[in-house]
Design a protein around this nucleic acid. Structure first.
Lengths: 224, 224
DNA sequence: TCATGTCCTAATGTTGACATTCGGACATGG
DNA sequence: CCATGTCCGAATGTCAACATTAGGACATGA
């Protein structure tokens, strides 16, 4: 009996490995938006067969990071204003439901974990703040809310936009994130306060506005 | 130049074919909830290779109809009260967004198409009404709303719950659908009226209530 | 009787070879 | 010069054989 919670046996198949590798390559900018992902090339560089690569790409398509057409290959999604509107519009609806559901389910312990995440953002901001690091905490915060909500279908839908969101935000962070970091701590702290003891309708409203603020901020920087 | 809109070239690969066949088999009750779907058996009965079956099953998993674990095979989802709560909770959030977005986008012609669908429900109900037929019209109505909204990510999320919803409703219809048919026409007609010229917030509220009414009605019949 | 350790089998996971399709380059005709 | 038809290459779609794994059956020992 190991005391550790669980190392989470990482046996999930080569397809997951391949998907993880390609996903990180996309985030690292190795495959810019619109570029083609050729199965044979990926299979060669990852050292696995085309079948596994193909299955991994299917997973990434599920996350909305790539798009594939019959006999025409798969390409990384573009980042147009329309795409941003779609992703953030959907995310607002999902966050609204996640927040109100989490408000009804959250234990004191879980609320404490959310506090800890906001504190981590705050200290990250105080020290030599790293944009991607702040982004990761932001995502982790919302992951936690979806986790508390406990609706597996909802979490699944969230995962289908999360990667795209991360890709969009990375682009903004690369251009400077003063505007982002100025609000991120306060907005999240307010969300926790409302989750703890806020009127349901106010929380729902604020959750939507939180997304909308991020959307506007991103669109302002989009034309690059 | 053919006058017809487009026969929509049905070349989408064997994986799609396999997915369609298995999906219909599940709906037809050939694979009850919880039953295992063995790749070799399916490949044999469908006359395609295991690779195609595997890819088709991945599509069905995307729709939430089946669930697969590593090296443990894939099984048809169960229909517990918790599952119903999850699906309908998410659907309410999606419908809320779809309705308000469609309200802003809808052309007169598109609103007319919605009217036509409600009329079709009405005449279906007047004649010798068939439950599954009524269900299909219900789904088509909401498909149209998502289509008008024009958010591809939102439509994708809708497709991820639509099949599950259909499976749940089929179960209810099999036990009699008087309660369902009594409300279906009026509720949909009211939605069209609100889409045409209703306050945004009232429409959002009604869209959620429409889903909630279906949820309660289903839960009442669930213990079978 | 119960707990434990070891096979064994039936299924999935993985692979490399073969078949099919798309889109463009080129030639041809108006 | 533009429209049309044909061909070709490169990539994806499909397949059947091989490797790996999970879970149960069985035997063993306390």
């Amino acid at each position: 009996m190991t005391g550790a919670p669980l190392p989470k046996a990482p046996r999930r198949g080569l397809a997951h490995e391949a998907a993880t590798l390609v996903r990180e390559a996309i985030f690292a900018g190795h495959f810019p938006p619109g570029s083609a992902l050729r199965e044979v090339d990926l299979a060669a560089s990852l050292g696995v067969s085309r079948g596994s690569v193909r299955e991994g790409l299917a997973l990434l398509e599920r996350e909305g990071l790539i798009h594939s057409a019959w006999h025409r290959g798969t390409t990384v999604i573009e980042v147009t204003a329309e795409d941003v509107e779609e992703v953030y519009g959907l995310r607002a609806a999902l966050d609204r439901l996640a927040s109100t559901t989490a408000r009804a389910n959250a234990s004191t312990h879980e609320l404490g974990e959310l506090d800890a995440l906001v504190d981590a953002m705050s200290s990250e901001l105080a020290g030599q703040s790293s944009g991607p690091q702040l982004l990761a905490l932001d995502i982790a915060f919302h992951d936690k809310i979806y986790d508390i909500a406990g609706n597996r279908r909802l979490t699944s839908a969230w995962h289908a936009v999360r990667s795209q969101l991360y890709l969009f935000q990375l682009r903004r962070v690369a251009l400077g994130y003063e505007h982002y970091s100025a609000r991120v701590v306060d907005e999240h702290r307010e969300l926790v306060a409302l989750l703890r003891s806020g009127p349901r309708e106010v929380l729902a409203q604020r959750a939507e506005e939180h997304v909308d603020s991020a959307r506007r901020s991103l669109l302002a920087h989009l034309p690059s």
